[in-house]
Design a protein around this nucleic acid. Structure first.
Lengths: 217, 217
DNA sequence: CCCGAACCGTAACGTACGGTACGGCAAGTG
DNA sequence: CACTTGCCGTACCGTACGTTACGGTTCGGG
């Protein structure tokens, strides 16, 4: 919500710089306290001088890493095609499953942790960046689908934002906070698909225009 | 989920020690990086030596602070009384509103931030403590109410845990992560009451045994 | 072949902060 | 009054880490 003026700079990463940022991600997953400039230099086989030349300072390195990871998570927008109930349901399920997969990945958890930490420490705006590429990015991608569903007479709501937030809550529930706080929660692909299906079903129960079967357990 | 063996020690806090922990909370709200042992000593007008004598080390101080705050958030359990639909709805709404008030408070946000940070840094288990006193505590307090609602024929579900997690998601949605990541989100009491009412209504739409009015906007 | 640019590896600097030691003071106890 | 206890204030120590500086190496261009 804040950037978009640096998309060129964001793409102006040499392959070597990408390697460095991947090293940062590795270290981050191994534990936030493992991320010292020395460790990065060692892991990436580069000199600290280079790190500072390329990324300015530690915060710049972290910011670049967050953008780097965000740039590869971005998936294509869902084209609004002919929508029947089944296609809509499937699209929503795919959204939900994809979102669950992202937030339960070790990289996402690690990245969100450092962003939360830095938000608490005032310096830098990693939080906004993560929000913009996470919560808000998915919202902007999902809302067109919801609106298409409404135009097709499949969904019913006044406020697409509110509808999206409900969907977000039905899908994510307590998962993200539990992972951030370190609970060893493992989501298998089967779990994810099941949760996505249930959340989608519940969403239809709340916002579906036609009556869909409601599963109450 | 881990403790309960130190409840005596937790209560064995002198008033003076409580003052110190309040100072920690103050500093935490002002920013996680403001929390140095020196700063605590200065703010609480005590010596560092005393801090170390009372709390062992920095982590001990943080742990004690989390427990201290948790001990005052704990509200009384809801007695299962004669439940009609209206009483159940009101209880759920109160739960939801209370939960929203807690997670949107500056203290809770600050405390969750440090817990997330420390979880990332491996040391100590602040994360488990926060989870135990937050997410899990409210779950254990709410599930009896849900089960009472089921026994009274007002709710329908197989798994109380799953039902609770849905309720949790409907209430919290994206609020906690947005706050943790630093979005300046302000929830007025009116917002909270409105959100709690909507979430409760949606919960009834999904799990209500009798048919309740469904608001779809 | 020579030069400069880019980069690696490492050593060094400055500082912030967790943790400790010590001197002083006030209060309770015999 | 002598003595102990508990605490405040402050100075101090050790260390970890961000940041900078510098010598050595590789590589492309003239």
């Amino acid at each position: 919500m804040i950037e978009d003026l640096e998309h060129e700079a964001e793409d102006a990463l040499t392959p070597r710089q990408g390697e460095v940022l991947d090293a940062v991600l590795e270290l981050l997953v191994e534990g936030a306290d493992a991320l010292t400039m020395n460790a990065v230099a060692r892991r990436a086989s580069c000199s600290k001088e280079t790190l500072y030349k390329w990324f300015g300072d530690r915060d710049g390195l972290l910011t670049a890493t967050v953008r780097w990871q965000a740039s590869r998570v971005r998936a294509g927008n869902y084209e609004r095609q002919r929508l029947d109930a089944e296609a809509l349901r499937e699209s929503l399920e795919r959204f939900a499953a994809n979102w669950l997969k992202v937030i339960s990945s070790r990289t996402s958890v690690a990245l969100n942790r450092v962003a939360v930490s830095h938000t608490g420490s005032g310096r830098s705006n990693l939080g906004s960046i993560v929000l913009a590429n996470g919560r808000f990015a998915i919202g902007e991608r999902l809302k067109p689908l919801l609106e298409a569903g409404r135009e097709a007479g499949l969904l019913q709501f006044d406020d697409a934002e509110a509808a999206f937030r409900t969907f977000f809550g039905l899908v994510g529930r307590d998962i993200q906070i539990r992972l951030l706080l370190g609970e060893p929660l493992v989501l298998t692909p089967a779990d994810i698909d099941g949760d996505a299906a249930i959340a989608t079903q519940q969403f239809f129960a709340l916002y579906g225009a036609s009556q869909m079967p409601v599963q109450a357990g």
